[in-house]
């Protein structure tokens, strides 16, 4: 562990001292030993605060959309494999340019679910990590300027646990049953928009929910408005969401947003053979015009 932190700190110090970047976004110890929190380092003498471990759950890419952060110009950022996919999408969508970003990648074999960690969980196992970690195909960040090896062993899978099993369960339900399920979930939504704020890919300066001429999304609590918000949010992330799970983690009322995101990702892959965040040079699946499109409505 200490080894990782030292490496991190050295990279950060070099980057800041050489003025290659003016800000490093990373993790530091939080309110208790099983919590990490984001930290912003601008001075070489502060790099000692940087740390990384199996509790580094946040996707720090979310900060890149903030004006306060953008101001720094060239930025170094600590990312896990899953988080790095967000960088790729941001680059595909011209929100981040590769020249302005130093990617400090850390190999990761899973992070412990925060709800368990808060109760003292420190063991890394198939029962303690997020579902996304069980399905992770990018333990090593795809793009990186620096790479720090993993300190944790690979998780062994017993085969008893099926990540996102609920998606299949929902798939097998009738439309009416699904309606009932989601209506109950969306009913909890308090329109705090934490899901949006936590998402690295929700970077619009004016979200559609804030558009009021016309008001497409009903901002009151209510069946229609709640469904509109949650569905449009999901739809705007279809083919873009990289599955970091930050939205679901941020939701104060525990709406299982990853079920929607996961289902969308599967459909996008089935229909278009596309997975988001894997290739910075790929055309985003909803950003393609093709003369040979199989639909003939736009020719």
């Amino acid at each position: 562990m200490a080894n990782i932190d030292e490496k991190l700190q050295k990279i950060a110090r070099d980057l800041l001292e050489s003025k290659e970047v003016s800000l490093i976004i990373g993790y530091t110890g939080g309110s208790h030993p099983q919590r990490m929190r984001p930290v912003f380092i601008t001075k070489p003498e502060d790099v000692g605060r940087l740390s990384f471990n199996r509790h580094s759950v946040q996707d720090l890419a979310v900060f890149l959309k903030k004006q306060e952060v953008k101001k720094f110009g060239r930025i170094g950022i600590v990312v896990k494999g899953c988080d790095e996919k967000a960088l790729n999408v941001l680059m595909q969508e011209y929100q981040v340019s590769r020249e302005n970003i130093k990617i400090i990648g850390v190999e990761c074999n899973g992070v412990i679910r925060q709800d368990l960690a808060d109760k003292g969980e420190t063991d890394l196992s198939e029962n303690t990590v997020y579902d996304k970690c069980l399905m992770c195909g990018e333990h090593t960040p795809i793009l990186h300027d620096y790479l720090i090896e993993c300190a944790d062993p690979q998780i062994s899978m017993s085969g008893d646990i099926k990540p996102f099993a609920k998606i299949e369960e929902l798939d097998s339900m009738s439309s009416e049953e699904k309606d009932v399920f989601w209506e109950k979930e969306f009913d909890k939504c308090i329109k705090c928009y934490a899901c949006r704020q936590a998402c690295p890919l929700c970077y619009c300066s004016r979200c559609i929910v804030e558009k009021n001429v016309p008001q497409w999304i009903d901002t009151n609590f209510g069946k229609i408005g709640n469904a509109q918000w949650n569905l449009i949010r999901a739809y705007h992330l279809a083919g873009r969401c990289i599955g970091c799970g930050e939205c679901e983690r941020a939701c104060p009322v525990n709406i299982p947003l990853m079920l929607i995101n996961g289902k969308m990702a599967r459909s996008i892959h089935d229909l278009f053979g596309y997975k988001s965040g894997l290739d910075v040079d790929a055309k985003p699946v909803f950003g393609v015009f093709s003369e040979s499109d199989f639909n003939d409505f736009i020719k």
């Binding site: 969508e93 011209y94 929100q95 055309k283 985003p284 950003g287 393609v288 015009f289």
Partner: peptide, 10 residues
């Protein structure tokens, strides 16, 4: 926000 999805599909 200059995501240029519009440019991609035009």
């Amino acid at each position: 926000v200059a995501c240029f999805y519009c440019r991609r599909v035009c």
